[in-house]
Design a protein around this nucleic acid. Structure first.
Length: 271
DNA sequence: AACACCCGCAACCGCACTATA
DNA sequence: GTATAGTGCGGTTGCGGGTGT
């Protein structure tokens, strides 16, 4: 059948949002609520499609968003939920107030997936990967590890698809025999693998977060605005937020005034 | 200092689902 | 029952910053 695009695309702006656009969208929604996303850009004076506005609001401008890196506990919960729900990110995100499906999806794809693979777990099924596949994966890891080392030493290395590796026993965890895909025991297995790998001095590979690199969006951040209104400041904000403050000067709503945002929007929508 | 590569994240795209005429 | 509009969701892409050489 083929649906029409949600809006006329000619002449519409794409790409990163500017502070002015954020400001317009925020002001409009706070004053009028959300009734029809298609009308939002027109009424708010934005050259964007409704879909883009919706996404920007949900993923970035919503006042109840929780910013900052996901904690290890949250990460474990995501793994648990993923084992039950699969890639239903919106359902998973529903368990984390203030987190967006996009954020969780990104985190899964960039970190958790790798972490599980390195631990020998299939990120899709949460089952231990087939022995051969696992060996290959281990071989890959070892290959990278060795090649980095050997590159430093400028030495020739042996090929890694040696029979010895294939015959190597898989790490056996307690209760692994009774492992059920999708069960909560996934977490136990994860912790078991972590301990094992840490014993092998591979902790840095499993937990790259041990050496985190602070990243932040150059776009407008509500966390920054909150910090400014409350005087709170994290180390991250001192770097990014302060820089932002120094360079941008415009008024934004005081988010701590909106204790129950849902009520506000429901009220608007019911009018 | 310059370049290449890697990684994380915001944003886009297209399909699916639901409501409605 | 069918077509269409609106919205939600998941997969993918591309940009920008960080890191290594």
């Amino acid at each position: 059948m083929g649906r029409k695009p949600c809006c006329e695309k000619i002449g519409l702006k794409r790409g990163p949002w500017t502070i002015e656009e954020d400001h317009k969208l925020m002001n409009f929604i706070l004053n009028n609520g959300i009734q029809c996303w298609r009308l939002v850009p027109k009424l708010a004076g934005l050259m964007r499609c409704g879909k883009s506005c919706r996404l920007r609001w949900i993923n970035y401008l919503r006042p109840d968003l929780k910013r900052g890196a996901l904690s290890e506990v949250e990460e474990d919960q995501i793994i648990q939920l993923h084992s039950r729900l699969g890639n239903r990110w919106s359902k998973i995100a529903a368990h984390f107030p203030g987190r967006t499906d996009n954020e969780i999806k990104n985190h899964w794809n960039t970190r958790i997936k790798k972490r599980l693979k390195i631990m020998g777990l299939d990120p899709v099924t949460h089952k231990p990967i087939e022995q051969r596949e696992k060996c290959n994966s281990e071989a890959e890891q070892l290959s990278r590890f060795h090649s980095q080392r050997e590159q430093q030493k400028d030495l020739k290395i042996e090929p890694l698809d040696t029979p010895g590796l294939e015959d190597a026993p898989l790490p056996q965890m307690e209760g692994e025999d009774s492992f059920q895909p999708g069960s909560d025991e996934t977490i136990n297995v994860l912790h078991g693998y972590e301990m094992l790998w840490e014993d092998l001095d591979m902790g840095m590979m499993i937990n790259p977060e041990n050496n985190p690199t602070n990243s932040y969006s150059s776009s407008f951040s509500l966390e920054d605005s909150f910090s400014r209104s409350t005087g709170e400041s994290s180390s991250l904000q001192e770097d990014s937020g302060q820089c932002w403050i120094n360079n941008v000067n415009y008024s934004i709503p005081q988010w701590d005034l909106f204790h129950n945002v849902d009520d506000i929007f429901l009220l608007k929508n019911n009018q």
